[in-house]
């Protein structure tokens, strides 16, 4: 067999072949992803989610809301008129995991914060068709019963702090949650809805009502909306 160095190199040396494959499949990812770490993100005006909002977000992720709802408003008139100011990168700074979504079976939620009263969300979660006739969203009535566990959220806050979310060292997770939750249940009571502050629905409302609020303040311009 006449010896061909290139033949030996590629076809007969599986280790080398594997190494070459590794290099070839790594280039694209490196070139695209690495620069993301060197782009400075201006987080001025972007608030860190409170413990109650973290709890609500965990529930949002748990229920797989991202399977039907996006959090990404594209810079097009049809989108900004329907949903509000288009999404900027720094607004997602504290999104772990990101929840941009890929299919709008329901509407975008990027700027749902402040769009409806707390009571609307309560009723909508209990029975989506009571507030949105024709909706195909499943009811989430268990959120009205199930309780948020403070120790569980403490663990989440600790992990997020390690990852760089700037929570103050002396943050009292339980007290912070109670305070924010009581404010929400107070508003709900005004709408004749009685619910304990430790229910999951309260955390979900806290999360939803905070969605996109910072960005709206930063980026809302006259004429949009």
């Amino acid at each position: 067999m006449e010896s061909n160095w290139h033949r030996n190199l590629l076809e007969h040396r599986s280790g080398l072949f594997a190494a070459l494959t590794t290099v070839v499949i790594s280039i694209g990812g490196l070139v695209e992803i690495a620069p993301m770490f060197s782009v400075p993100l201006d987080t001025t005006g972007i608030t860190v989610p409170t413990p109650l909002e973290v709890a609500g977000r965990d529930i949002y992720v748990r229920e797989g809301c991202y399977n039907c709802h996006s959090q990404m408003i594209r810079p097009m008139r049809a989108e900004t008129v329907r949903y509000g100011e288009w999404s900027r990168a720094n607004e997602y700074a504290y999104d772990r995991p990101f929840q941009l979504g890929s299919r709008r079976i329901g509407p975008d939620l990027m700027r749902v914060g402040g769009k409806y009263p707390d009571a609307w969300h309560y009723e909508h979660m209990r029975d989506p068709r009571s507030t949105s006739p024709g909706s195909i969203m499943p009811p989430y009535s268990w959120l009205l019963e199930d309780k948020v566990d403070v120790a569980d959220i403490q663990a989440s806050v600790n992990a997020l702090r390690t990852l760089g979310h700037p929570y103050p060292a002396d943050l009292d997770v339980g007290a912070s949650m109670r305070e924010q939750a009581t404010a929400i249940t107070g508003r709900l009571a005004e709408s004749k809805i009685t619910v304990d502050p430790d229910r999951e629905i309260v955390a979900v409302i806290a999360y939803l009502q905070n969605l996109g609020v910072d960005g709206k303040k930063l980026y809302a311009t006259a004429g949009s909306q």
């Binding site: 490196l30 070139v31 992803i33 690495a34 620069p35 993301m36 770490f37 060197s38």
Partner: peptide, 14 residues
């Protein structure tokens, strides 16, 4: 993040 990603990031913009 790491020297490697930084180097790649910088060179990818050249």
């Amino acid at each position: 993040m790491s020297p490697v990603t930084d180097a790649v990031a910088q060179s990818a913009q050249l």
